[in-house]
Amino acid sequence: MSEHLLSALNPSHSAVPYSRPQSPNAPAATRVGFVGLGAMGYFMAQNLANHRASLPNDNPPLLVWNRSPEKSKKLLNALGEDKIRIAQDPAQVASECDVIITNLANDAAVKSIYEKFTEELRRAPPTQHRIFVETSTIYPSLAGELDALVSSVPHSHLITSPVFGTPAVAAKAQLLIVMSGDYRSKKEVAYIFVPAIGRKVFDLGGNLEKAPTFKLIGNSMILGTLEVLAEAYTLAEKSGIKILPAPGTIAYSDKMAHDKFDGSVGFAIDGGIKDASHIRRLTAEVNSPMPAIDVAHQHLLTARALHQSRKQEGKAVFDTLDWSGIIAGTRVAAGLDGLDINKHDSIVREG
Rank of each mutant, 00 (worst) to 15 (best):
V169K: 07
F43V: 00
K255R: 12
G33N: 07
L121W: 01
P126V: 07
S151P: 03
S180H: 03
A15C: 08
R280V: 06
Y42P: 05
K238M: 09
T118Q: 02
R31W: 00
R184I: 03
N57P: 00
L301Y: 08
E70M: 09
I84Q: 06
N57G: 08
V286C: 12
H157D: 06
V93H: 13
H157A: 11
E120P: 02
A148H: 11
S185K: 13
F117P: 07
R281H: 11
G266Y: 07
S112C: 07
D107V: 06
A168S: 10
S156E: 01
G33P: 10
L223M: 14
E119N: 15
V64R: 03
P140A: 04
M256A: 05
N77M: 04
M40V: 12
D337Q: 13
E70V: 12
R123S: 13
H299T: 07
H344F: 10
G181H: 10
P61C: 10
Q46I: 00
L244H: 13
L79E: 04
D322Y: 01
T302L: 14
G266M: 01
P245D: 01
H299N: 15
S12A: 10
P24I: 01
L244A: 13
E96P: 05
S346P: 00
G314H: 11
H344P: 03
L75V: 04
Q88C: 06
L55N: 02
I217W: 00
S180E: 04
P154I: 01
S112P: 01
P195L: 03
H299L: 05
A305K: 13
A303R: 05
K255M: 09
E231P: 07
P17C: 05
D147H: 11
S151F: 00
D107F: 09
L244E: 12
R280K: 14
Q174G: 13
R331P: 09
F214C: 12
H155G: 07
K215N: 10
A292F: 09
S324K: 00
G144H: 01
Y191V: 11
A91H: 03
V64E: 04
G38D: 08
P291F: 12
A276S: 14
R184A: 14
K83M: 02
R280G: 05
E227P: 09
K255Q: 11
G181K: 05
A78F: 04
E81Y: 03
A276F: 07
A196Y: 03
W65C: 04
A87Y: 09
K73R: 12
V348N: 02
V286W: 02
P291V: 06
H51R: 06
R85P: 00
L121K: 10
S264M: 10
N103Q: 13
S239D: 01
S7F: 07
D337H: 15
D345W: 07
G266W: 03
